[in-house]
Design a protein around this nucleic acid. Sequence first.
DNA 1: AAAATGTATGTAATAAAGTAACAAGTCAAC
DNA 2: GTTGACTTGTTACTTTATTACATACATTTT
Lengths: 159, 159
Amino acid sequence: MTTIFERHDHGACAKEALARAEDLAAAQGLRLTPVRRRVLEILLEQHRALGAYEVLDRLAAEGLGKQPPVAYRALDFLVEHGLAHRIQRLNAFTACQHSHPEGVAPVFLICRSCQTVAEMDATGLRRDLSRLGGEAGFSVERATIEALGVCAACAGGAA
Amino acid sequence: MTTIFERHDHGACAKEALARAEDLAAAQGLRLTPVRRRVLEILLEQHRALGAYEVLDRLAAEGLGKQPPVAYRALDFLVEHGLAHRIQRLNAFTACQHSHPEGVAPVFLICRSCQTVAEMDATGLRRDLSRLGGEAGFSVERATIEALGVCAACAGGAA
DNA sequence: AAAATGTATGTAATAAAGTAACAAGTCAAC
DNA sequence: GTTGACTTGTTACTTTATTACATACATTTT
């Protein structure tokens, strides 16, 4: 499995994600407005999750909006359409790193040392979770799976 | 698998949990002070997660503390010793329903209709998650697994 | 092109959640 | 009965998030 923990061409990675967003917008008739697009770009700059107010500060510095709702609305839009994810543990947001065709939400790996947040496909895990819920008569609709730990680079570097 | 979604003697369920807490405190030399004990009792009254401020309001009504730190400290104590859990999706807390011998954190099933939060053992899921992380060189230390959906009773009742 | 409609943004105000810092009290051990 | 560790009280504040309403922009209808 390949994650963004590995060395990669980050510029290309961000560019691709933006292109995917544009394709999605075109395909689904969504409006990737300047604010929304800029928020996605800001999230794509780093592989760590940003708080809504960090995003807002950036927007404010560029004259794109000074009040919380501006940031929250754009972030909500991105999350709703799968272009970004909310990391519950951090009350923060990160750009989506892979395209998740259907409603296949990923698992997040959060490095507590470098703050990098990586996504991994977790189809199997989700199936198991649904099965587990099913045993209790519970119908799983959405699931949050977040792992906190240390990435290879940080584990190696700190050794 | 049996969860608190099923009919059960709630009084007994709460009483047992409290007894477990006392045993734990005795065994580990922890101080289950009046505030801490009362917070646990409050959480045990319902099988839904309570926000820190809901707990605080209850404490205040009983003269046990009026400021946020009082509630947060007690909640942190309970969480730290496995007597309660924090539900990330809800920014809320729920009493532990099973004793988790070691550091075996459970999975949470959150009914979006009746707000009940049930725990299930997820040893297998956690192992799979660790393995998945391992594939990316990531060492998982702690994991949050929360499922949002509908419990059997609500699905049946609403049908 | 003007009116009507739907959607997005701007703004103010406030709510909700969480923390820092320090003073004061409690309790067990010596 | 004083020391030291832990717990609680209190003030003040920070961070995160939402409500409500006004304004602007875009699209379709006429």
